[in-house]
């Protein structure tokens, strides 16, 4: 599912703050700086996250017409992970430990020797494994100050908020009734008044003039 076609299931954010006058160059630079890179197995990483173009998850050459479309900035957040199937790893480790034990002539390998075999084997298996690739489209209407991320997953959204801020220097804030009131232009006076409201107790018997607090 994505921004360009298919199901429209997304999380919406408000983005406040000034967009730089030179955003056409500075935002392209920022995207390139935070572009997706392959998982670095040498550093023993299991995952990697970064921006890719919305049309092609393997393209990190951000050009203006790949990214900007009228007042919309469109990119995708790519998140690769390597997860080895636990059951298969266990079998490989068991075999490797058995082979090493036989070769050593010992009756049993020490715990640290077994751990070393396991770590070495996992590194080898990760080099052969195909990473799981996920992309989440992002559409930012810079005129409206609204960003859509095509994901409702909590963890993905938490990562997105940090990554967006790191890339563009602006903070996406989640929707909520108070923020919606601010967006709708309610006055300062009403934004203060709303804080003094109490829950309406809609299930209270009609004609009851004293509002009841909903019990905990």
């Amino acid at each position: 599912m994505g921004a360009l076609a298919g199901t429209i299931t997304m999380t919406c954010y408000y983005v406040q703050g000034e967009i730089p006058k030179d955003f056409k160059t500075s935002y392209l630079d920022a995207l390139r700086k935070n572009a997706f890179t392959e998982i670095d197995l040498e550093l023993e990483h299991d995952e990697s996250m970064g921006w890719v173009t919305i049309h092609d998850p393997f393209n990190v050459d951000f050009e203006l017409n790949d990214v900007l479309w009228g007042s919309y900035l469109m990119v995708a957040l790519r998140h690769d992970t390597i997860r080895l199937p636990a059951a298969a790893v266990k079998l490989h480790v068991r075999k490797a430990v058995a082979d090493a034990t036989k070769k050593s002539g010992k009756e049993k390998l020490s715990k640290s020797e077994v751990e070393e075999i396991k770590d070495r084997l996992e590194k080898q298996l990760k080099k052969k494994a195909l990473p799981n690739i996920k992309t989440f489209d992002m559409v930012w209407n810079m005129e409206r100050g609204v960003v859509w991320l095509w994901s409702t997953n909590k963890k993905v959204n938490e990562q997105f908020i940090d990554f967006f801020q790191e890339t563009f220097g602006l903070v996406p804030s989640e929707k909520n009734p108070y923020a919606q009131m601010e967006q709708l232009g309610f006055t300062e006076e009403l934004l203060e008044k709303v804080l003094d409201l109490e829950p309406a107790a809609m299930s209270a018997p009609p004609g009851e003039s004293r509002r009841r607090r909903r019990s905990a």
Binding site: I8, T9, M10, C12, K175
Partner: peptide, 27 residues
């Protein structure tokens, strides 16, 4: 209710024909 998030949107059928126009209309 807690966030006023609007998701799971089904939009009306698009009326435009060109790809670019359709994307604009979708948004």
């Amino acid at each position: 209710g807690d966030t006023l998030q609007v998701s799971g949107v089904k939009i009306p059928a698009l009326l435009t024909r060109e790809d670019d126009d359709q994307l604009y209309e979708r948004f």
